[in-house]
């Protein structure tokens, strides 16, 4: 097994609202291994983005990280990101240096008033000691690397002059500018059309191979998971309910939620890029989390008197995969 690069443990992030604190992330444990791809999958509103943002402490008001640790093993000394000071150099180095991050809305994630070159050069100079001219050369190289045609011209283009796919490529270029060891991608293809989506995924796979990066890829599209993942974590209502290698997960999903997700995999070309179509029912408001297992109102296998009362245990199977479900409580490794 590869070395752990990033370890999230017991992470809790809540949002203060008028009606109380919304527990968007409610005790998440995750590990990203060096050079591997971890896919985090789940319906909209499960807390995937908040988890990703919590890693670099980007959660915005009224959100607050309440508990947990995020341990970074990429430096000589492992350290807890969450306990760093605001102005700690290691945090600045992590953001955009060791960890690159790309987002769901590429066009909105770039400042409209500055050319992509300017934003790229700014980041390069932030994390390396290249001078202006060298940084510009590097910016053009990076644009070339992410497959933007005519990088010499495009470097001076404004984000609104580029298509969504091109903007996402530019974002990837910015994320790559300091050779990060981890790339966090938060639904980077959701806002793009199908062909562009496939190209961006190809690009990411290539880049990962070439640079030996780890990738934490957030998506609600199981098709993408099958293409990219080494490991998969399934999230539901702020918790990781199942964790497994990609083959095991597809061959033998344990958690009823995972099974429901797999059954709802969209028909080819129809619902791609949209929310999952047909897991029956809707994700409850995290403010009013169902008692017991939070999935039980939508679960086909729910056991009355048990699932609606007790929190489900985390069951660890022989091969290291886990599931939070009472079905496996006392028969380890059993077939469903």
């Amino acid at each position: 097994m590869a070395q752990p690069l990033l370890e999230i443990s017991g992470l809790r992030t809540g949002f203060e609202t008028h009606d109380g604190t919304v527990p968007a992330v409610d005790g998440v444990d995750l590990t990203v291994h060096a050079g591997k791809t971890l896919c985090v999958v789940g319906e909209s509103g499960c807390g995937k983005s908040v988890t990703a943002r919590s890693i670099l402490r980007l959660v915005e008001e009224p959100g607050r990280i309440e508990a947990g640790t995020v341990t970074w093993h990429g430096d000589d000394e492992p350290f807890d990101v969450l306990s760093l000071d605001h102005d700690d150099e290691r945090l600045q180095k992590l953001r955009g240096g060791d960890i690159g991050m790309i987002f769901q809305e590429p066009a909105a994630s770039l400042l409209p008033l500055r050319s992509i070159g300017a934003q790229l050069i700014e980041t390069i100079r932030n994390h390396t000691d290249l001078d202006k001219k060298a940084a510009r050369e590097r910016a053009i190289d990076l644009l070339q690397l992410v497959g933007i045609p005519k990088p010499h011209e495009r470097v001076d283009a404004y984000p609104f002059q580029l298509s969504g796919g091109m903007c996402q490529r530019a974002m990837i270029a910015i994320a790559l500018c300091a050779d990060p060891s981890l790339l966090i991608a938060d639904e980077p293809t959701t806002a793009l059309d199908v062909t562009t989506q496939a190209r961006i995924l190809d690009l990411m796979r290539n880049l990962q191979e070439r640079h030996h990066m780890a990738v934490m890829f957030i998506t609600h599209d199981l098709g993408v998971v099958a293409e990219l993942a080494d490991e998969v974590a399934v999230m539901y209502l702020g918790r990781v309910v199942e964790r497994a290698g990609v083959e095991e997960l597809f061959a033998d999903p344990k958690h009823p939620y995972t099974r429901a997700l797999l059954e709802s995999v969209p028909v080819l070309g129809r619902d791609r890029g949209r929310d999952l179509p047909t897991v029956p029912g809707t994700v409850p408001n995290p403010l009013h989390r169902p008692k017991g297992c939070s999935f039980h109102p939508r679960c086909r296998d729910a056991i009355a008197g048990r699932c609606d009362i007790d929190e489900p245990p985390e069951v660890v199977f022989d091969d290291g995969r886990t599931a939070e479900c009472v079905l496996y409580d006392d028969r380890e490794g059993a077939q469903a």
């Binding site: 992590l94 953001r95 955009g96 690159g100 987002f103 909105a108 409209p112 980041t123 974002m171």
Partner: peptide
């Protein structure tokens, strides 16, 4: 509150 602010913070702009 715009995404580009978070994105800029994520790439380490002081």
């Amino acid at each position: 509150r715009r995404p580009y602010v978070t994105a800029a913070r994520a790439r380490g702009v002081p």
